[in-house]
Design a binder for these strands. Structure first.
Length: 278
DNA sequence: AACCAACACAACCGCTCTCTC
DNA sequence: AGAGAGAGCGGTTGTGTTGGT
């Protein structure tokens, strides 16, 4: 698949956006909606690359952008999510309403990575003092370190395939209600604090005759679960922020990785993982 | 007041993936 | 099936601001 430049860069403005450009872009998008970024500059009369327009809109001009300092709660959530997801900024941003991936990435790089690293070093020093075995932690660029995180491509997820065996397993895990008992209910099912997508009757009626798998519609909006529930759930206990032991202390790290790998292998995409991915 | 380093954040770049034809 | 367009993502860079000397 060949890669073509997103646009001819000749004669285009670069660098900081002017108020006028912002206004033109905002007005155009209000009138015509988002999308078709490549053609947008020409149609709107902007001397900008379509990519640049998209970025400007998404990171700065969107009306739902929350500006201002990142709160302590948000910061805590970012740390937890980073521990869970790694540098999946868009996924992290998706759980922080009004925040953009760029903003979170910048905030992490300038504030949190340093703080977390300091904390990690302190903890590591303490651990070695106590004669604990050392964990080898790979260090990435800008001093960040890698953890066992869910490495998935962030893609739109409108459907999930669920292996009935796995589903049954999850049902058994669910207490006190189970999915199978309430398939026709319109209420999302909660397992360990996670909201699972609703399975409609039509879904039950028409499983693929060839495959034993079935598909259920998975509307991210409807199946939205509260991340703090996820983070505080037994399923993935990443409540503690001890990055010093991030490699081994969190049950989530290993479990999630194994879980997701397993799921990918058998064609299952977890509602949990799926909704994070989306 | 001038200089410089560190910081913060907007913007850019290259790559990958999905969708459509 | 394959190619190209469109879009999204994460890493990096550029630049304005702030604080220290």
């Amino acid at each position: 698949m060949g890669r073509s430049p997103c646009c001819s860069k000749e004669g285009l403005n670069r660098g900081a956006w002017t108020a006028l450009e912002d206004k033109i872009l905002t007005d155009y998008i209000k009138q015509h909606g988002e999308g078709r970024w490549r053609n947008l500059p020409k149609r709107a009369g902007l001397k900008r690359c379509g990519k640049s327009c998209r970025l400007r809109w998404l990171n700065y001009l969107r009306p739902d952008i929350k500006r201002g300092n990142i709160s302590v709660d948000e910061e805590e959530l970012i740390i937890k999510l980073h521990k869970l997801l790694g540098n999946r900024w868009s996924l992290i941003a998706g759980r922080l309403p009004g925040r953009t991936d760029n903003e979170i990435k910048n905030y992490w790089n300038t504030n949190l990575s340093k703080r977390v690293n300091d904390h990690r070093q302190k903890t590591a020093a303490g651990a070695s003092k106590n004669g604990k075995s050392k964990q080898v932690i790979s260090t990435g660029t800008n001093g960040s370190f890698s953890t066992n995180v869910v490495r998935t491509r962030a893609t739109r997820c409108s459907q999930v395939f669920i292996n009935p065996d796995l589903c049954d397993h999850m049902n058994r895990e669910a207490k006190p209600s189970s999915l199978s008992e309430n398939r026709t209910s319109s209420e999302p099912k909660q397992i360990n604090g996670l909201l699972l997508p609703v399975v409609s009757e039509s879904d039950n009626e028409g499983p693929d005759p060839v495959s034993s798998d079935f598909t259920l519609d998975f509307d991210v909006g409807e199946a939205e679960f509260c991340l703090s529930d996820l983070l505080n759930s037994d399923f993935c206990d990443v409540g503690e922020l001890d990055y010093g032991n991030a490699f081994c202390s969190s049950p989530l790290s290993d479990q999630t990785l194994d879980f997701s790998d397993e799921l990918l292998k058998c064609g299952f995409e977890s509602p949990v993982v799926g909704s994070i991915i989306s």
